[in-house]
């Protein structure tokens, strides 16, 4: 993180060069305004029975889609994935599917960590000495297999 680009965007303009310890902070927080853009999570495999749950689509629509896959689509199992805030919704969908199947469906949940990338773009490229940066962070995810156990 402390990559030497710091002084240009230093928080302490009075002595930007003599405070190397402030380097990290000056990258994080500085007078240059940045726009934070969240990149989309990296592309993931998508089979016909994979459902990636989000928070934008109506809950009932996503639940209905899962039901359709299991009932009409003839799939013996589907995988419901949720990332971050959508974890709750993914769990809710899985539990609802199980409840409405009168116990015929089983759940097997796994958890994982997904690395996400944010882009930091200086708002005013002409004036600001800031350079575009990227930052990575982790978020939790859940993968729920919803399936009819084999007899």
């Amino acid at each position: 993180m402390n990559d030497g680009r710091a002084p240009g965007a230093a928080v302490l303009p009075q002595n930007p060069l003599t405070s190397p310890s402030g380097g990290l902070q000056s990258v994080e927080m500085d007078p240059v305004e940045y726009t934070l853009r969240k990149r989309l999570p990296r592309k993931l495999p998508k089979r016909r029975n994979d459902v990636y749950v989000n928070m934008k689509t109506d809950f009932r629509a996503q639940l209905a889609r899962c039901q359709k896959l299991l009932e009409g689509g003839g799939h013996r199992e589907i995988c419901v994935h949720g990332l971050g805030l959508a974890i709750n919704r993914a769990i809710n969908i899985a539990l609802q599917l199980q409840a409405s199947s009168q116990g015929a469906l089983q759940l097997a949940a796994n958890t994982s960590t997904v690395e996400l990338v944010d882009d930091l773009e200086p708002d005013d490229p002409d004036e600001a000495p800031g350079e575009p940066m990227t930052r990575t962070r982790n978020n939790s995810a859940i993968h729920i297999k919803v399936y009819y156990p084999s007899p």
């Binding site: 089983q106 759940l107 097997a108 958890t111 994982s112 297999k145």
Partner: peptide, 13 residues
């Protein structure tokens, strides 16, 4: 159901 062996960290994806 729901078992996950060690070191599947982000490997799932």
């Amino acid at each position: 159901p729901g078992y996950q062996p060690p070191e599947t960290l982000s490997a799932l994806w």
